[in-house]
Amino acid sequence: MQGKAWYKYLLSLPPMAYLLIFFAAPTFIMLFASFRYAGEYGGLAPWYLHEGGRLTLDLTLENWQRLLETDIYLRLFLRSIGYAVATTLLCMVMGYPLALMIARSGRKHRDLLLLLVILPFWSNFLVRIYAWMIIFSPAGALTRMINGALELLGMGSVTLMYSPTAMLVCLVYVHLPFMVLPLYANLEKHDLDLLDAAQDLGAGKWRRFWLITWPLSLPGITAGSILVFIPVLGMFAIPDLLGGTNGIMIGNVIKQQFMESRDWPFGSVLSMVLTVTAVAVVLLGSRLGARREGR
């Protein structure tokens, strides 16, 4: 049965057809849309002209040129990547000790500790953002506490709401489990005898960490980094709610083209750029992962 062709198609065709229609086709439609004109009232203009009984193509490079016209889109892009890199690094710094602690704790507690990481993750992510909006509110307790302390020290007050700091904290908060879980999965598999052997040979705590644990955990870090980096890159809700006047990311501009400005072609251009970046990151990550595996 397993070798028969009909069985193979029975299994693979339905999901393949579905994904071709609802994933591959829309992606190509977007690519095509990036070369079309915007419709008079939004949407897309026809891609052909009917002139004297002949059909001619009516496509343009205008939308792509607009991307290169000024440096503002490049800067937007770099800023988005900057947020994604910063979030990834912070998640790593915060997630590593946590994952290590869980992996090194007794079997009995491990599941519970892990569940405690996942639990907040199961509440809707808008709720989690909302929680920080309460905290960052200038009338909120935290901000008043910080400002009270700053005043005592004779320094000026700070505003947390609508600042890059607020955005970053929220981005880290929402994506932290994406880093912790793959890291834990990796750390848990480490052979602790290696550490014991190193200790017997006289290696200190930090030396043992840097020479054994860290290199062994690199695949987990790579996986976690991809899982954090990509969703942050396309984020629009957090900048929308917490970003202030300077917190715009590429996701917001894409959303703006489709949901406000009614400029689908330019929105498609930006989406394509984001697609290519995400693909590049994934490829780079899996390349790095593969090289390590091979070592």
Binding site: Y41, V253, Q256
Partner: peptide, 18 residues
């Protein structure tokens, strides 16, 4: 008009980004 709308959109995007 569509033309003015495009111009305003462009100015607006610049405002948001710079």
């Amino acid at each position: 008009s569509t033309k003015v709308r495009r111009l305003k959109n462009k100015l607006w995007t610049e405002i948001k980004l710079k």
